[in-house]
Design a protein around this nucleic acid. Structure first.
Lengths: 260, 260
DNA sequence: AGTTTCGAAAGTTTCGAAAATCCAATTTAC
DNA sequence: GTAAATTGGATTTTCGAAACTTTCGAAACT
């Protein structure tokens, strides 16, 4: 008997996760430190903090209204997620982006996402299907954002997009696979953001096709569509993001400075 | 023309890694903070800090002779590597271990290691072959440690074992794959340690077989041997580590307390 | 002109004390 | 006698000042 529709991602899916060792995701509802971490992560993913940008404690301290120690902890976290880098005594900076990295990232995503999806389909439940339908519905209500849409619209779309893709794989039984899949998904979001900013290309409704293949439990089709979905995104970025190939992609909207 | 034999892992292999975004591994030669991190990581992998053990700041501060802030940063790092966990306001603890986790971990390792190895073979160079031969030689000079060998022997073997496995995949072109492979390898080391402590089983010389298949560039054979190698380790642990199945594996040598 | 040396300024890292929080044992209320 | 509230001690979290390192530019020296 199907459960009542759960709140966010999907209740049943994480039962086994609690029992294992796989790294903690964004889950802990820590107080201040985690709050700063989450904000900074989002700022990097949305290129408010731009690739290669130096992350100075002074500025960050103002921006996030917190102390050096707290900042340091958050930054340290970002480093192990791959969103920032650090060197001996010369502070932190946002990780660079490059076409090579995006290609590598995406191929590993294909490799992991398909494995994860296949397993999820194998162990799918009613509640899982329900969350897929629901999250796809929410996503489809928002048209893919255009370059000149306001930030908030893009962010909302990003949220729903993530929720949908999370829903697809929620019943996968391997916590480790889910964890790495999630990290890679976030990494890709940085590049998606660049694409959103630059591309006016209209893509056919891949999310719908994937949804239907998944609900039909057609694992092969679903995986192949998903793989295509990921690879198309790369092609779109290569075509439309100026400078990505030469390695000096520009990020629009330099971001508001707080002072002078 | 083959390069001169480089020092440790292998020079040519990491050239592309520098150019990408993949998380920084154990690479930065940071001062104090990183030193503590490395020591703590090794202590967890060798079960000196036992699974589920509460990590209190007071004790750790003595053990590693450092301040709270530094400790906190290191711990935070360990959390994102999956070696520790933390919850809201109740501190840190060593990640638990379980058979389910080991199984999950190992299957993902098979999936990633084989992909990584295949790519490494595809792009192998003379220097790569040389480092494989060399690291295998060093490994083979040490017999697999027995339960009552001293700690230092076990640790040295662990080091050489890791160096050999790193060498195998060093020419893989995907920094992200290499990074996750490496993290998973470390995770598995915790379970290997338990096995070393308990098992007297003598395994046939799998490392040699893998080496020869790799040097012969027989990708299929090499991958299948490597997969077997990983899975055998799981079976050995299931057979010989008491309590792993029931989830209360004991770690020998309770570890010296500093006080009372 | 180009290189080196030096010192001040900017920035990072480390530290431990103060504030906040949690836990368990004891008391209080029912 | 049990359950809720209290309280004190232990532990964690946060913070900013002190110590240290790097950076940068001006002055001195090839």
């Amino acid at each position: 008997m199907p459960k009542v529709l759960p709140a966010t991602p999907f209740e049943g899916a994480n039962e086994n996760l609690a029992a294992t060792t796989a790294p903690q995701d964004v889950s802990r509802e820590d107080a201040a430190t985690f709050d700063v971490l989450r904000k900074m992560r989002e700022d990097i993913l949305c290129c408010v903090l731009k690739p290669d940008q130096k992350l100075k404690f002074g500025e960050l301290r103002q921006r996030y209204d917190t102390s050096v120690g707290t900042l340091r902890e958050a930054l340290s976290h970002l480093v192990s997620e791959g969103l920032a880098r650090t060197e001996a005594g010369r502070g932190f900076q946002v990780s660079p982006i490059s076409l090579a990295d995006f290609l590598d990232l995406s191929e590993l995503r294909v490799y992991l996402e398909t494995k994860t999806l296949a397993d999820a389909i194998r162990h799918g439940t009613d509640a899982w299907e329900a969350e897929i339908v629901s999250s796809h519905f929410l996503l489809s209500k928002l048209a893919a954002p255009r370059p000149d849409d306001p930030l908030s619209v893009k962010q909302e779309w990003g949220k729903r997009h993530k929720r949908y893709h999370d829903a697809l794989v929620a019943t996968c039984r391997s916590p480790w696979s889910l964890h790495y899949r999630s990290e890679l998904f976030d990494q890709a979001r940085r590049y998606h953001w660049l694409t959103m900013i630059h591309s006016r290309l209209h893509r056919r409704n891949e999310h719908l096709e994937i949804r239907d293949a998944v609900l039909a439990r057609d694992s092969d089709l679903a995986c192949s569509l998903l793989a295509q979905h990921i690879r198309t995104t790369v092609e779109q970025a290569v075509a439309d993001v100026p400078g990505l190939i030469r390695g000096n992609a520009r990020v629009l909207k330099p971001g508001k400075r707080r002072k002078s």
